[in-house]
């Protein structure tokens, strides 16, 4: 049985064209490569300290 209210929660307002600029600026561009690089940097830094 479909619950209208529950299903309705899955729908969100779509971005309008005027909001495209904000959407681009707020876009999360982090990826695994950046995370791994950061982890490696932190490890190197820790090793250097040691």
């Amino acid at each position: 049985m479909i619950n209208f209210e529950e299903e309705l929660k899955k729908f969100h307002p779509s971005l309008e064209v005027d909001d495209a600029a904000d959407a681009i600026h707020q876009h999360d561009l982090s990826d695994v490569a950046e995370i791994i690089v950061g982890m490696l940097k932190d490890e190197r830094f820790r090793n250097d300290e040691v």
Binding site: L15, V17, A20, I24, H27
Partner: peptide, 13 residues
């Protein structure tokens, strides 16, 4: 799928 703003966002990036 009709999400034009999402498409433009990806293309600009």
């Amino acid at each position: 799928t009709g999400d034009v703003v999402g498409a433009l966002t990806e293309w600009v990036i």
